[in-house]
């Protein structure tokens, strides 16, 4: 149960599309992310009374821990922060003592664990999403300078060639129209939007005819 509405605490399964348009129960649009391992902590079990977490904290002190645990949960600002293993002010990351640890340790364990989790479908979706041109620019600029600092590359005449190369490489990877077979096409909308010339005709053999700027007319 990785996603939970921060408003009404309704839980959604991993990959659920229900929450994409807001919580169907309360309309809330803020959700916190709870990786599978985190659900083993008493945090979620306390409010739902579900049995799947009984194994983790069988001793009665779990009841006593419920209120601090629950308080600490909403404090995690977002799913991102939890999933990224946000550096925590609490310093003891040892899982071995968790069995007889204090209530606070339970919480620590839950929050430090996600950093070693394997990627789930939601994260995979987010990672495979298309970024905007601006983001690409931002992402493209740091590497050359980082390279310069890290190793003595041949005298840097200027930094732009590296960025240009990267852009060219990206352009090669993301062509504007991919012809899978005649009648089946994949379109890269950002690339189509960015390109100067307007594609006016696709040919059967995979070529396309473009109208170059010099021949543009103001009016059709």
């Amino acid at each position: 149960m990785p996603h939970q509405c921060t408003n009404c605490e309704r839980v959604f399964a991993d990959g659920s599309k229900e929450m994409l348009s807001g919580c169907p129960d309360c309309g809330g649009n803020k959700f916190q992310f709870k990786p599978d391992s985190a659900t083993e902590t008493p945090t979620l079990g306390d409010d739902s009374g579900g049995g799947d977490d009984a194994e983790t904290t069988p001793d009665p002190s779990a009841d006593a821990t419920s209120s601090p645990t629950r308080e600490s949960t909403p404090r995690t600002p977002s799913a991102d922060a939890a999933a990224a293993g946000d550096p925590d002010p609490t310093p003891t990351p040892e899982p071995s003592t968790a069995a007889d640890a204090t209530p606070g340790d339970d919480v620590i364990e839950a929050e430090s664990d996600p950093s070693v989790l394997t990627e789930d479908t939601a994260q995979a979706d987010a990672r495979s999403d298309v970024v905007s041109a601006d983001e690409l620019d931002d992402a493209a600029s740091p590497p050359p300078s980082a390279d310069d600092a890290a190793r003595a590359v041949p005298p840097t005449s200027d930094e732009s060639p590296g960025i240009d190369d990267l852009r060219a490489e990206l352009n090669d990877q993301f062509e504007s129209i991919k012809i899978l077979e005649p009648g089946q096409y994949e379109l890269n909308l950002m690339e189509l939007y960015d390109r100067q010339e307007c594609i006016i005709s696709l040919q059967e053999d995979g070529h396309y005819v473009i109208e170059v700027a010099d021949t543009w007319r103001d009016d059709a």
Partner: peptide, 30 residues
């Protein structure tokens, strides 16, 4: 982001016409 002539086949359009429509639709998006 995707145009597939098979979409048109569901609307009683023959394959040749569907491929043509698909190509024109792609040009249209561009």
């Amino acid at each position: 982001t995707k145009v597939d002539y098979k979409e048109f086949l569901e609307h009683d359009i023959d394959e040749e016409d569907a491929v043509r429509r698909s190509r024109e639709a792609t040009e249209g998006v561009a």
